Amino acid sequence: MSDTRDFLPARIAVLTVSDSRALADDRSGAVLVDRLTGAGHQLADRRILRDEREEIAAQLRAWIADPEIDVVLSTGGTGLTGRDVTVEAHRDVYEKEIDAFGTVFTIVSMKKIGTSAVQSRACAGVAGGTYLFALPGSPGACKDAWDEILALQLDYRHKPCNFIEIMPRLDEHLRRK
Score class of each variant (00 low, 15 high):
G140F: 07
G129D: 02
T115H: 13
A134G: 11
V126P: 00
P136A: 05
A145L: 03
K111Q: 13
R121M: 07
V108N: 10
S120A: 13
L132I: 14
S109T: 14
G114W: 13
T130E: 02
A145M: 05
D147H: 09
T115V: 07
S138T: 14
C123R: 00
P136C: 06
A117F: 11
K143Q: 11
F133D: 02
A124T: 08
K143E: 09
A145G: 14
V108H: 08
M110G: 10
A134T: 11
G128I: 06
S109C: 09
Y131S: 05
M110Q: 14
C123A: 06
S116R: 15
G129H: 04
R121C: 03
L135K: 03
S116A: 13
K143F: 12
G129C: 06
E148K: 11
A141V: 11
I113C: 07
A145W: 01
D147T: 13
V126M: 01
A134Q: 05
G137W: 03
C142S: 12
A117Q: 14
V126A: 00
L135M: 14
G114Q: 15
S120I: 03
A122M: 05
F133V: 09
S109L: 04
L135N: 09
G137V: 06
G125Y: 04
S138K: 14
C142K: 01
A124G: 12
F133W: 04
T130G: 00
G128A: 07
D144W: 07
G140C: 10
A122I: 03
T115A: 07
C123K: 00
C123G: 06
V118S: 12
T130I: 02
S138Y: 15
G125N: 04
A127F: 01
W146S: 05
Q119D: 12
Y131N: 05
M110W: 11
G114C: 11
V118A: 04
W146K: 02
V126S: 02
L135W: 08
T115P: 12
P139C: 06
S116V: 09
